[in-house]
Design a protein around this nucleic acid. Structure first.
Lengths: 390, 390
DNA sequence: TTGTACGCGTTATCAG
DNA sequence: CTGATAACGCGTACAA
C-alpha cells in the first residue's frame, strides 16, 4: 500500500479509501489508485486488516465430516454464496466429537471469525451456546437434536400431539436455523408411492433424532390423509447398515408383494435394495423404494434410487444469507422443501404382480450362495426376445 | 496479553516468550504465565502473530470438489496431520475451474499462507507453477496430468517404452508429489482376478490422464507376467457414466462367461455392475468386477465392490509431512501402494459356469422392462431349499 | 533471565 | 476531498 501511495504521491489513507470504495473520494484518484494497485500486484494483507478491524471476513464452518456426499454439497453452497459476499469459509471437520467441536470454536475465535455455521452438529446444544456467548453470529443447518424414543412411539402408535410437531428448531438459543422440511419429505415419498397404486406400505425408521422423527411423522400424515394408516414401521439399529438390511429382509420374508417402502434416508434405501435382491424381490416390480436426501450416489445405485432431494446447496446459501444479510427477513428458522427425484426404484403396481411376487417371497432365502438356483435366476432362452415386447 | 502481563507484574515480552516456550525463560515464571493465561481466557490473535511473522500456520488446500467421497478422506488425513503440527487447513473447492484455482491462490496469498496442497488438480501446471513462483511450499496429491491418447495406444497395442513408465511426477516444477501407485493397483486388481481362475479378462479404460494410463499399464503388465496378454480394453467416453454402462453391456452381449473385469475406478465398476444386471449376467458368478479407489460407497453397492483401496488419509498426511517436515526424507515424489479390499463382486470361477453363462449372454437384452422374464429371473420354488446346501 | 521499544499493514479519527 | 497519525496484538533486537 505504501508503494502504491508513493508511486502516486498520495497518502496511504487515500489508497486505503480508494480500495474500499469510500464515498468520500474523487472518482479519478480512485481509478488511478486501482490501476496502480493492479500494476504493482498489490495484494491486501488479510492479517493487518483483521488486526485493525477485529473482524475477519471468514465464516467458520463445522461439519461432522468432509465428503460424506451430503455435506459436500452444503459446503459448496456455503462457499459460493460466501464468495459472492466477499467471505471465505474456514472448514473444520469435527468427526462428531465434541472435543473437536470445541477446538474448532477456539480456532475460529483466534482467527477473529464472527460468522459461524454448524452443519448437522451433534445433538447437544453446548457448541452453539458457547458460540453465541462468545459473540458470534451463528446459523445451524439441519440440527439433528436427539429425541426421546418415547416420541417415536407416540407418532407411531398414539395420537399426535402438538408437542411433537413443534419440537426442535432453535431450542431457545439465539441462532438462525435452516432446516430441511423432513415432515413434508416423508409425505412426498409416501404420496408418490400411494399415487403409484401402492396400498401396502412400510417405513424404515432412522435413529432417535429430529429428522428421523419428522420423516416418520410425514409417513403417517400422508397415510392418514388417504385412509391407509396404520402401516408397519421397521426399527433397525441406528446407523447399522447390516441391521437395516436384515430388518428389511425379515420383513420381506413374511410379506407378499407389492410393497411400497419409504426409507429414512438414501443409505437405508440402499440397504433395502440389497435386502430385496437377496430375497429375490425385484425392484421396482415387487418392491418400490423411495429414499430421502438424494446423496450423490443415489444416481448410481442399481436400480437408480427414487428419492426426495434436499436442496443442499440452497441450505448452505441460506445459512450464509441469514448471517450476512440480516435485513433479508431473518425469521429465526427457515424450513426448505425438498423435491421428488424419480429414478428407477419406483414403478406403478401391476395388477398381477401379487401372484408372481408371492412365489418369490416364499422361496427366497439366499440367492447369493449356492449354485442350485443359478439357472432359474435368469430368463430361459426362449423368453429372451419376448421380454422386449412386454 | 497485556492483561496477563499486568496481572503478573511482568512485561508483555515475558508473556510472549513464555507462551512460545522460549528457552530463555525461568520455569516458574513460565508456569505462572501459562496459568494466568488460562484463567484469563487468553486467546492469541492469529492476525497479529501473522502480521508480525509473515507466516500463517495455515495450509492452503485446493480440491476439485468437497465431498465426492474420495477427496473427503484425503482432506481428513490432511486436517488430522496438520492439527498435530499446529496448522489448520484452509480449504478451497475449485470445481475444476482454472479461474477458481487462481482465485484460491490469491486468497491464500492474502492470508499469508505458506504451505500449499493441491489435491487432484486440473491437468495443466499453471496453478502449481504460479504457486512456487509466489514462494509457497507446494505439494501435489495425485496430479492427474493429461496424457496424449497416443500413449494409451502404445500401452494397449505396442511395446512399452520407458518414456511411458517415467511419465508424470513433478513435471520439472519444484513441488513434492505424493501419488497413488496406479500401476501396482492395476496389477493387483488383475492378479486377484487371475488368481481366482479367470482367463478371460477385460479392462474398462478411464479418461486421458496419468492415473488412467498407469492403471491400464498395470493391467497389461500383470497379464504379460502370466502369459495372458493381450486382452480387450473398453474405451467409453471419459466421465460419462452411461457410456461406460453401454460399453460394458455391448461387450457382454458378444461374450461368454466367465469374465474378469478390471475397471478404471469404482465409478466405472458401478457402471459395470449395472450393465451386468441389465444383461442378465450374475455378479460375481458370471462376471467378477474389481474397482480401484475404494470410495466410501464401494461398501454399499450391490453386490459390495471388491476394489484396490487408495490409502487416502495417508496420502493427505504425507503431503503435510512433505511440507512441514522437510527433514523427513523428502524425495520429491513418493508413491504409495494400495491394498486389495475383497467384497462380493469377485469370486472364483466355477468349472461349469461357462455353460450356464452362455445362456445368459445369448438371451439377455433388457431384464428390467417387460414381464415375460419375471418368473425365471428368480429361482423356482422347488430349488429354494436346495440352494442353501450348495 | 527480563524489560523496552519498534514495526508488521491496515483502518479510523481528526484536522485541514 | 485528502493527509497525518495513532492503534490493533504480537514477536524480537537490543539493552539491562
Amino acid at each position: 500500500m505504501k508503494d502504491v501511495a508513493a508511486a502516486l504521491n498520495v497518502s496511504t489513507a487515500t489508497v486505503s479509501r480508494s480500495l474500499r470504495d469510500d464515498p468520500a473520494i474523487s472518482l479519478e484518484t480512485r481509478r488511478a489508485v486501482l490501476d496502480m494497485a493492479r500494476s504493482l500486484q498489490y495484494r491486501p494483507s488479510a492479517a493487518a486488516r483483521r488486526l485493525r478491524t477485529r473482524a475477519s471476513s471468514l465464516i467458520g464452518v463445522v461439519v461432522q465430516s468432509v465428503g460424506d456426499g451430503y455435506v459436500g454439497d452444503v459446503v459448496l453452497g456455503i462457499q459460493q454464496r460466501a464468495r459472492d459476499l466477499g467471505y471465505q469459509p474456514l472448514l473444520f471437520a469435527a468427526e462428531g466429537r465434541e472435543d473437536l467441536e470445541a477446538e474448532a470454536l477456539d480456532v475460529f475465535l483466534s482467527e477473529q471469525v464472527t460468522e459461524f455455521i454448524a452443519v448437522s452438529p451433534t445433538g447437544r446444544p453446548q457448541l452453539l451456546r458457547r458460540a453465541v456467548e462468545e459473540g458470534l453470529h451463528v446459523a445451524v443447518i439441519n440440527w439433528d437434536i436427539e429425541v426421546p424414543a418415547s416420541l417415536f412411539d407416540s407418532v407411531e402408535r398414539g395420537r399426535i400431539g402438538t408437542r411433537v410437531t413443534n419440537f426442535g428448531s432453535s431450542a431457545g438459543i439465539d441462532v438462525s436455523s435452516i432446516a430441511f422440511h423432513d415432515v413434508a419429505a416423508g409425505m412426498m415419498a409416501t404420496s408418490h408411492l400411494a399415487g403409484l397404486g401402492h396400498r401396502q406400505l412400510v417405513h424404515v425408521r432412522g435413529p432417535n433424532v429430529r429428522s428421523s422423527l419428522f420423516r416418520l411423522l410425514g409417513f403417517r400424515r400422508a397415510l392418514e390423509t388417504i385412509g391407509l394408516w396404520p402401516q408397519p414401521v421397521l426399527s433397525p439399529e441406528p446407523h447399522a447398515q447390516e441391521s437395516r438390511e436384515a430388518a428389511v429382509a425379515a420383513y420381506l420374508r413374511d410379506t407378499r408383494p407389492p410393497v411400497g417402502m419409504v426409507a429414512y434416508d438414501d443409505l437405508s434405501a440402499v440397504a433395502a435394495l440389497r435386502a430385496a435382491h437377496r430375497m429375490g424381490w425385484r425392484v421396482p416390480e415387487d418392491l418400490s423404494v423411495v429414499g430421502i436426501d438424494d446423496i450423490q450416489f443415489a444416481a448410481y445405485t442399481n436400480p437408480g434410487l427414487t428419492t426426495v432431494a434436499q436442496p443442499k446447496q440452497e441450505l448452505g446459501a441460506l445459512a450464509v444469507d441469514a448471517l450476512l444479510l440480516p435485513g433479508k427477513a431473518d425469521p429465526g428458522t427457515q424450513i426448505l422443501d425438498g423435491y421428488l427425484v424419480v429414478r428407477e426404484s419406483t414403478a406403478p403396481v401391476e395388477r398381477d404382480a401379487g401372484e408372481h411376487g408371492q412365489q418369490a417371497a416364499d422361496t427366497s432365502s439366499d440367492l447369493s450362495s449356492g449354485s442350485a438356483g443359478v439357472l432359474s435366476i435368469r430368463p430361459a432362452t426362449h423368453t429372451g426376445d419376448a421380454m422386449m415386447d412386454g
